[in-house]
Design a protein around this nucleic acid. Structure first.
Length: 570
RNA sequence: CGGGGCGUAGCGCAGACCGGUAGCGCACCGCGUUCGGGACGCGGGGGUCGGAGGUUCAAAUCCUCUCGCCCCGACCA
């Protein structure tokens, strides 16, 4: 392609609206433009990247036996009412009506539609397994869209669905998709990690997220540097401490702690560390019941685990006046001793502790030398806290490390959740009817592109990994002479014939402008042709990522590039 | 939904307190010079100042309402 014929509106200055690097660079490089909050037009350059990612996905999914189809964006409310997600999905589900005032929604995901298709068309176990996927625009009316393509309202997603006879077969499909995802992300050239993820209350047996590693990632993961184990902190299980404290129990004591509401303040006042302090978190559940959760001062509560341990759907921290009513003390002085009518949950680490500190349920007061059982009763001891760096790995027992990631893929065992609600059944070889066992598998295409930029950029612009780069080579005639023109034209034709994607900057611009745009757009190789070089019979090739420049005679340029591209393609 | 902020040329911004001819840089168009890391000279085009209403002789500027956008929080398969 020639720059003069391609719509690539690059921006010299940073647009004010862009917060994160990928968003800024995508706008600046002329890949996307915003239409409305969380909705973007994909310009030619941006679309090329999306197509590259999509094609890698297609290739690997097809190889894995999945089949592509395409479902409507708009879905009738009836289907969503069958699964009750019309109610459950909340405001994120974008609803609308047609001229007959029939309810529809924009699909944020397509379980209902695909399950409907399945139940209409599939009768027999002979037709199973089936794995179907689409690459389609999705819509979720996010409360607060942000970060460009990272969290838009409208976005392109690959979603796949598997249908199997039973749990065992479903796991085979799940594994197939997991393996395909592994190959897909390897092929994109991104650094990523598959991590165990939370399955939510829906249960299900397995769920993994595919995280592109980037410091700017929204998700926190823990991993075992020795083993393959990695998990989202939301999900990572924390094993109970191996031994309980052996410290002899000391007598309970009430102390004054004026104004000390936070863990830090109490520690400073009592000259101790958060390790020996226990915070009491009061939560409200869906039944308006209140529970107390005891977590060690240096740990974070994990609300997902708390919900799961009690089978709850909703959990919110109690408001200050509620805390006051229950504990007779302001927030910051709650404790388990003397708490009435409140179920008390404790994390393993608390249970293992002796002589710790808790709030006194009285303003400006704490108890010290507190001990479980002796001073108060616990209703449930469980794993209730967030994993953190240094915790013991469930695999090697060694210390876990943490990293930040961007969730670009998610594989999920659904089980019979949808097939049951929607009566998606098949007949087995004995003529018995069974519910199909399902799995679903998503990849955020736009998000993957954004994640690629978060992971591969410098202060000048994007540094695309070869497999998803919009162009392989950016050809830059850098002086306006006839000789340069001739060399550039023949190089362009030659590379193009060989299937190498070349962007020729044929604009009447100065060298500096072309260099800067090339660095911004981020093609892996810049081929620089100028009078200075030609005088010595050389052309410069700059590798965008390393900045290395090689000087080659014009006749050797093509071969050099072919070799380099072949090197890094797989 | 709560808190904060912003809407003035395609982009980035000034002007607003203190009402009186709408500005700057970049981009864009023409001519010329220049040409290996965001050139220069000369000449030019482009604005219902987000929208509606009000106050006033006069509103980008003051008041009211409204819409949109950004940031923080709550929320998030």
């Amino acid at each position: 392609m020639r720059t003069s014929q391609m719509f690539i509106p690059t921006l010299r200055e940073d647009p004010g609206e862009a917060e994160i690097i990928s968003h800024r660079l995508m706008l600046r490089a002329g890949m996307i433009r915003k239409l409305a909050a969380g909705m973007y037009t994909y310009l030619p350059l941006g679309l090329r990247v999306l197509r590259k990612i999509e094609n890698i996905i297609r290739e690997e999914l097809n190889k894995a036996g999945a089949q592509e189809l395409l479902m409507p964006i708009l879905a009738p409310a009836e289907l969503w009412k069958e699964t009750d997600r019309w109610n459950q999905y909340g405001k994120e589900l974008f609803r609308c009506q047609d001229r007959h005032e029939r309810d529809f929604c924009l699909g944020p995901t397509h379980e209902e539609v695909i399950t409907d298709l399945f139940r209409r068309e599939v009768r027999s176990y002979r037709q199973l397994p089936v794995i179907l996927y689409q690459i389609q625009t999705k819509f979720r009316d996010e409360i607060r869209p942000r970060f460009g393509l990272m969290r838009g309202r409208e976005f392109i997603m690959k979603d796949a669905y598997s249908f199997d006879k039973n749990e065992a077969d479903a796991l085979v499909s799940y594994q197939k998709m997991y393996d395909a995802y592994d190959r897909i992300f390897k092929k994109t050239g991104l650094q990523f990690r598959a991590v165990e993820a939370d399955t939510g209350l829906i249960g299900g047996t397995s769920s993994h997220e595919f995280m592109v590693l980037a410091n700017t990632g929204e998700e926190l993961i823990v991993y075992d540097p020795e083993e393959s184990y990695a998990a989202n902190v939301e999900r990572a299980e924390v094993s109970p401490p191996k031994e309980l404290s052996k410290e002899p129990l000391k007598p309970l004591e009430k102390v004054k702690t004026p104004g000390a509401k936070t863990v830090e303040q109490v520690c400073a006042l009592l000259h101790t560390s958060p390790h020996s302090l226990v915070k009491t978190l009061l939560y409200k559940t869906e039944g308006q019941e209140v529970i107390a959760v005891l977590i060690r001062g240096d740990h974070q509560a994990n609300e997902i685990k708390i919900k799961r341990s009690l089978g709850l759907h909703e959990l919110t921290l109690a408001e200050p006046d509620m805390v006051q009513a229950l504990t007779a003390a302001p927030v910051g002085f709650s404790g388990p001793i003397g708490l009435q009518k409140v179920k008390i949950l404790a994390d393993h680490a608390v249970h293992a502790l002796h002589n710790f500190i808790v709030g006194g349920n009285e303003a400006d007061t704490h108890f010290i030398n507190v001990n479980c059982e002796r001073d108060f009763q616990i209703d449930l001891v469980a794993d209730l806290r967030q994993a953190q760096e240094g915790d013991a790995s469930p695999m090697s027992g060694g210390p876990l490390q943490t990293a930040r990631g961007i969730e670009v893929g998610h594989v999920f065992m659904l089980g019979e959740k949808y097939s049951k609600k929607m009566e998606a059944t098949y007949l087995d070889s004995n003529g018995q009817e069974h519910w199909a066992v399902m799995g679903c598998y998503g990849i955020g295409v736009g998000r993957a592109a954004a994640a690629a930029i978060e992971q591969n950029h410098d202060e000048k612009g994007i540094m695309w990994p070869i497999p998803i780069a919009p162009f392989h080579v950016h050809l830059l005639p850098v002086t306006p002479s006839v000789e340069v023109g001739t060399v550039v034209e023949s190089l362009y034709t030659e590379l193009d014939k060989l299937g190498i994607e070349v962007l020729l900057d044929d604009r009447d611009e100065r060298a500096g402008v072309k260099f800067n745009d090339a660095d911004l757009i981020g093609a892996p190789f810049q081929v620089v042709v100028g009078d200075k070089g030609l005088a010595k019979n050389t052309i410069d090739i700059k590798a965008r990522r390393t900045g290395e420049v090689v000087k080659l005679p014009p006749s050797e340029v093509t071969k050099w590039i072919i070799d380099k591209l072949a090197d890094r393609k797989e």
